[in-house]
Design a binder for these strands. Structure first.
Lengths: 201, 201, 201, 201
DNA sequence: GTTTAAACGAGACGGTACGTCACGTCTTGTC
DNA sequence: GACAAGACGTGACGTACCGTCTCGTTTAAAC
């Protein structure tokens, strides 16, 4: 399922030249490339336009600000599949954690998220982020918890927001604050095991 | 214990007018005020100077970059006491979590941390951050774990980095990514209880 | 005599939908309106199209550049009649001056001429302007001078270019450089009287 | 006498780094060079900054708009000396006309005036132009007429504005509208002779 | 009639310049 | 030599306009 694909009012489709998909794609992939190469701080709208072979106006026709564009590029196309039924809470938590870790440690996301957080005084981007990225992940967490309750692994369903924070948070901190050397992926199973223990207690 | 107070080499004290403490204080409190008012994104060095009633040069005489200044202002004076022996792992984890939550949710820190993370490609600030904020918190986590091992609550000492991530992460995510409404402080006991269960398992 | 009516090759009339006269008229009158409202500097092709209720392409199908369009709108339909034989050099000079003043002080022309002059590095517009506006006026000046010589009012025929400059110039300066308050029309008789005296001397 | 040297509020001179004369001079001469090379239409603020080896901000600190800058550069330093007493109205008119022709046909002025006229909807530039360029020339015309009256060459003093238009206008038209080939300078004596005849009649 | 070809309103396109703003440095005169 | 003030070069921002190019539709002439 594609999470996100554009921010500004789509063309009213009432006559006029239609937007070119080629341009949409070029913007997003140029943004991702430059995010990987120089991070959020080193990313310029002009450079994105140049790399994409388009004009700046074509970008601002689609995104109100640079932040919107980066957000779209970093989160767009994150294919957040729903968690499969793996038979046990712990296995599903591990699956969730791995997906979160994989998502956050993708090269474009890694370059963008810090910067996005910085400019988050901009309420529009904040709420868009919540409506897409956060809401979708939350739904997955809820689904896993509901299944665990149905299986009898949990007697009462814990607050999904708390569990979400417990899964997402450590991965986030590991990547963006603590910046421990080594792969995050190895961290996921440990985290999932601990979370399962915490919930079962 | 005061964590941080300045970044650049103090004046060599070889004649000339000494730096005025008044200026140091004015910079830091102006920075904190503006951080609260407009967040990191809306903070400019010029505005800090104007608010403090000083010149920009006085700032750059003390901090090499805007990031250093914000970091000093947001973290300076965070009095990170060592965790007292409270008799049980769970009580001490709760104490740690509450201190972390209190630290991160302070108004200036809340405004600054996201932005600081954004500009963290700058290695100087990254390493300074790690050497002070992270290292000190990590030491506290280690101390708590060591005491729990000594008490026999834990058979083997878990990796302090992992535990650190499990405590800091959810608080961080709660505040900066999920931005759930309501106080973080109420979140701390729940988190500590879960962490204790996870570690004991 | 109509001076000017279009610049680009008319449709070859080889099938296809014919151009609509309605559109021609709408472009010209929208241009004139906007010229009056905001002058040349404030006029955009997009605004002309919007005001005329047409598309930009319909404009560029008729005029190669914005300058061509403005020129057509400001000069089109200037009905430059030939000067009647009024019996005396002075009377005919006065007639010429009044026609020039009336032409230049028309609302659309007043808004356009300065701007047109500005973009006159474009040689196409320059030569078109010379071939129409200037050439026609020059012919009228020549005719008046020839008649004066025939009448014996002048012993030798002065250079028509000089006389043209002496009539057109002051009106032009009055309107576009000096911008004296008050009507230009009252200025015409004085100017004509002086010109007559100068030529007779 | 220097006509013009800056437009925006000079620095209050109450502390702070003073403006560098080097920058003022570099802006003006770069503007003149580019005016000569490409005319008003081909002149960009960025190019002026680059040629001058300065930043755009240094330009906008001095001039509110591109037009102000061009005006300053084209008219700045026009050393409009007062007309000397040459003994006769005709000689002094010739002197005036020559000065006007020399001024308008200078390379920078020639490149700028058309464009300036175009953007003249901007009232600030218009009034500045009147207050400096026009007012000064007008004063010279008045002085010449007053002396002619004192000498008894004229019985009543004609309207200076009209005479100004009669001298400036033809030169202006010659250069910017008619664009006759050949030097304007040769035109000045003829014009002055005619003007003298017109006034004496 | 059908076909064909161009004009139509709308608006997206690449490009270029605008004027603004912030950074971190430098330069005054004063303390 | 630190201070307040503020100008400096650099370079990104988001806006506006140019002249071109697609869309899907409409309209008249050619067949």
């Amino acid at each position: 399922m594609v999470l996100y694909s554009g921010t500004m009012s789509a063309p009213t489709a009432r006559g006029g030249r239609p937007r070119e998909e080629r341009v949409d794609a070029a913007i997003l992939s140029a943004t991702r490339e430059l995010l990987v190469e120089g991070g959020y701080a080193g990313l310029t709208v002009g450079a994105v336009a140049a790399r994409a072979g388009i004009g700046k106006a074509a970008i601002y026709r689609r995104y109100e600000t640079k932040q919107e564009m980066v957000f779209a590029a970093a989160v767009h196309g994150l294919d957040l599949e729903s968690p499969p039924d793996l038979g046990s809470l712990r296995a599903e938590l591990e699956w969730l954690t791995e997906v979160i870790a994989a998502t956050l440690s993708g090269p474009a996301v890694a370059g963008a998220l810090g910067g996005l957080l910085a400019d988050m005084s901009d309420d529009a981007v904040v709420s868009r982020m919540r409506e897409t990225f956060v809401a979708h992940q939350r739904a997955n967490v809820t689904a896993v918890l509901d299944r665990a309750v149905a299986r009898g692994e949990l007697t009462s369903r814990p607050d999904a927001a708390v569990v979400h924070a417990m899964l997402l948070g450590p991965v986030f901190a590991w990547l963006f604050v603590l910046r421990e050397p080594g792969d995050v992926r190895g961290f996921a199973p440990t985290l999932a095991r601990m979370a399962a223990a915490a919930l079962s207690a």
